[in-house]
Amino acid sequence: MTNSQNLICVTCPRGCSLTISYDDQDQITITGNQCKRGAAYAKAELSDPRRMIASTVRIRGGIHKMLPISTNAPFPKGKIMNLMAFLKSVEISAPVKMGDILIENVLNTGIAMVASRNMEKID
């Protein structure tokens, strides 16, 4: 008997439909992926699902009130709402450069929050 499960790979816009089949020995085979990253995604999705998280934080002295930021690696799905609650308490000061690390090791995940763009200081 084999069992199977379907997933859509979210790693890139192609969005391949993956099929994960288990045989008697619980060995898994992944099909439907158009590249290697699809198989890695399927394995992670079953054991430790993660997502890239992009959001904004308040910024003082910039052209806009909000600065777009992002995780520098996929973030554990179960802790996303904790991350969002934490980000509400953060305020950054301009100037900022794209790629600047704004928060290191956020919520002890080993993941950093980085600035998605430059924002000059304006008077």
């Binding site: 816009p13 890239m52 959001s55 904004t56 777009p68 992002s70 794209m98 998605s116 763009r117 430059n118």
Partner: peptide, 25 residues
């Protein structure tokens, strides 16, 4: 793109999954 803060941009061009503002930058 400056308001599209989510990632998913630039895989073809830069081989990286960038947020919209980074792609524009």
């Amino acid at each position: 793109l400056l308001q599209c803060v989510h990632s998913g941009f630039g895989l073809e061009t830069f081989g990286e999954d960038l947020p919209g503002p980074s792609y524009a930058q």
